[in-house]
Amino acid sequence: MTGKHISFILSVALCFAPLASGQETMTEEHKRWLKEKFAAKHQALIPKVAVADMFYGCNTVRKTDPVPYQVPDIIRKMDKNLLAEKLKLCLGEETPQSDNALNFGLVGCFNDQLSELSDKERMEKMELVESAILRLSREQRQQSFTKCVTEQAIRYLQ
């Protein structure tokens, strides 16, 4: 499978996750309206969502914090400065721009996007996501993460 195919699979998985859970997806028109109405809030929320995803993915693997946080709770309830400190502690010597941090972010974002699926379906899709992460170039992973976080932030505006 080529990188383009894997990137496409990630995009398709993201787009169809709400359909698989029985939820209706927002129309493009509704998304556009939300972006226009909440553009400033959306732009302010994107960095926190990205950091939340990175921390979730990192903490799931490295377990630097004993609390098994869920992405929605991190985004909605955790102070952004505390979140930044927790990510820094989890990443250790690495920076948020590192490959590992990007991979953690993808895992966190897709895990959140697929959270409405059954455990079995989510685990199957997350295996595909994790497999795809290993095959994608950094640029493709960055594009996928940017798209995923943007969509995710829209959901948290509602």
Rank of each mutant, 00 (worst) to 15 (best):
M1T: 11
G3D: 05
S7R: 04
F8L: 11
I9E: 11
I9P: 00
S11P: 01
L14Y: 04
L14D: 05
C15D: 07
C15V: 05
F16V: 14
A17P: 13
A17W: 09
L19P: 02
A20P: 02
S21D: 04
G22K: 05
E28P: 05
W33F: 14
Q43V: 07
Q43I: 03
A44W: 01
K48E: 06
V49D: 01
A50G: 05
A52N: 08
D53P: 00
Y56L: 15
G57L: 04
C58W: 01
N59I: 06
R62A: 13
D65E: 06
D65R: 01
P66C: 08
Y69M: 00
Y69A: 01
V71K: 01
P72E: 08
D73P: 05
D73E: 10
I74A: 02
M78V: 15
D79E: 13
L83V: 10
A84R: 09
L91W: 07
E94K: 13
T95E: 02
N100C: 11
N103S: 08
G105S: 04
C109W: 00
C109G: 09
F110Y: 15
N111A: 15
N111P: 02
D112W: 09
D112E: 12
D112P: 01
Q113A: 11
E116Y: 06
E116H: 12
E116C: 09
L117E: 10
E121S: 14
R122E: 13
M123I: 05
M123A: 12
K125I: 15
K125H: 10
M126T: 07
E127P: 02
L128A: 06
V129M: 06
L134N: 15
R135K: 14
R141L: 10
R141F: 04
T146I: 08
K147L: 12
C148H: 00
Q152S: 15
A153K: 03
A153N: 02
